[in-house]
Design a binder for these strands. Structure first.
Length: 282
DNA sequence: AGCATCACCTGGCTGC
DNA sequence: TGCAGCCAGGTGATGC
C-alpha cells in the first residue's frame, strides 16, 4: 500500500513532470473517486488552472494551483497515478482498466488515476491554511521527512495514548505517513513489539523509535518505495520501487529473523496483523 | 475524551 | 480444475 516513501516518490515525479503545466480538461468516470464534491464542481475548479507546486503531508498529495486552490489526491490502498507523455507510443495510450480520472494537460500529456479498489480520492479545496496546505490537514501529526520527528516530539505525541505501538504509529493524527508495512519495519528496527502499549515505553525506547523511523523512511525513499507482488504501486512513470527487497519482517512469516535467526511470527491485535520477531523485539 | 470496531471494495489467495 | 469464501489495507463514522 502506498505509504510515505511511495507517495513521496510519486510527489517527486509530479514535481518533475506536471508542475508548471496547465490543466486543459478533466474527465471523471469513476463513481467513487470524487465524493466530497460533485465531479462537475471538481472539473470546473481544475479546468484552465496551472499547477504551481507538488506537496505532500503523510500519504496525502497536494497539488497547489495558480489561484491558491489545492487539488488533494489520496491513493489509499490501490490508487496509482500515471503520467503519459504527449509523445508516448500509441500502444500505451489506451487507459488501463479501473482508470477513474484523467487530467489532460495543455501540452497533450495526461495524468491518469487508476484504482481497482476505489478507496482513493480526489478533491479540490480553497480552504487553505497559512502554510498553503488544506486547512483540514492540521489534524494530522508531523510528517517525519517534511517536519522531522525528534524523540521529544514523538514522546509528547504518544504521551496521552494507551494503545498498541503499531496502532499509534499508523494513526495519522499521531504521525503522518506510516502504514502497516513501515510500522512493522520500524518496530523491528527499534527492537519493540508492535503490540507493546505506548504508555509502557521508556525515554530510551522512544529515542530509538524516532531514530529508526527517520532512518528507515529515508532509506525507503532513496529506493523509491516498496512494490509488492499483489499490489500495484509504481512511480509516476510506471516503474516499481525496490525497498521491498530490504523488508526484514513484513510479509516474511516463518522466515528467519535477520538479527537472531528465529522464525518471524505474526501477531494479531484488534482487526490488524503485525509481523515481528518474538525473540529480539520486546 | 479516548479507545474499539466497523464499513468501504475487489484482486488474489486458500481450501474444499 | 473450479469455485466459494476469506483477507488486506487507510480513513472516517459510529458505538461504548
Amino acid at each position: 500500500m502506498p505509504e510515505l516513501p511511495e507517495v513521496e516518490t510519486v510527489r517527486r515525479g509530479l514535481d518533475e513532470r506536471v508542475v508548471g503545466a496547465r490543466i486543459a480538461d478533466v474527465t471523471v468516470t469513476g463513481r467513487r473517486t470524487v465524493r466530497r464534491q460533485a465531479p462537475e464542481d471538481l472539473v470546473a475548479r481544475l479546468r484552465g488552472r496551472k499547477i504551481t507546486e507538488a506537496r505532500r503531508k503523510g500519504k496525502f498529495l497536494a497539488l497547489v494551483l495558480d489561484d491558491g486552490q489545492v487539488l488533494v489526491i489520496h491513493l489509499r490502498m490501490s490508487g496509482q497515478l500515471l503520467f503519459v507523455a504527449n509523445d508516448s507510443d500509441p500502444v500505451s495510450l489506451p487507459a488501463p482498466p479501473h482508470t477513474h480520472v484523467v487530467a489532460q494537460l495543455s501540452d497533450g500529456s495526461e495524468l491518469r488515476f487508476v484504482d481497482p479498489r476505489t478507496f482513493g480520492e480526489w478533491y479540490v479545496t480553497d480552504e487553505v491554511g497559512p502554510d498553503g496546505l488544506p486547512a483540514d490537514f492540521h489534524r494530522f501529526g508531523p510528517d517525519p521527512l517534511v517536519d522531522g520527528l525528534p524523540s521529544r516530539v514523538l514522546r509528547d505525541r504518544l504521551a496521552h495514548h494507551r494503545i498498541p505501538l503499531k496502532t499509534a504509529l499508523t494513526d495519522q493524527r499521531v504521525v503522518s505517513g506510516i502504514g502497516s508495512i513501515y510500522a512493522d519495519e520500524i518496530c523491528f528496527d527499534a527492537g519493540l513489539l508492535p503490540d507493546r502499549r505506548t504508555d509502557t515505553l521508556g525515554p530510551g525506547e522512544i529515542t530509538k523509535l524516532s531514530r529508526s523511523a527517520s532512518k528507515l523512511l529515508r532509506n525507503a525513499v532513496r529506493l523509491r518505495g516498496s512494490s509488492l507482488r499483489d499490489e500495484r504501486y509504481t512511480d509516476l512513470m510506471g516503474a516499481p520501487g525496490s525497498y521491498q527487497l530490504h523488508h526484514k519482517v513484513y510479509g516474511r512469516l516463518g522466515e528467519p529473523c535477520p538479527r537472531c535467526g528465529n522464525p518471524i511470527s505474526r501477531r494479531r491485535f484488534g482487526a490488524r496483523v503485525a509481523y515481528c520477531c518474538e525473540h529480539c523485539q520486546h
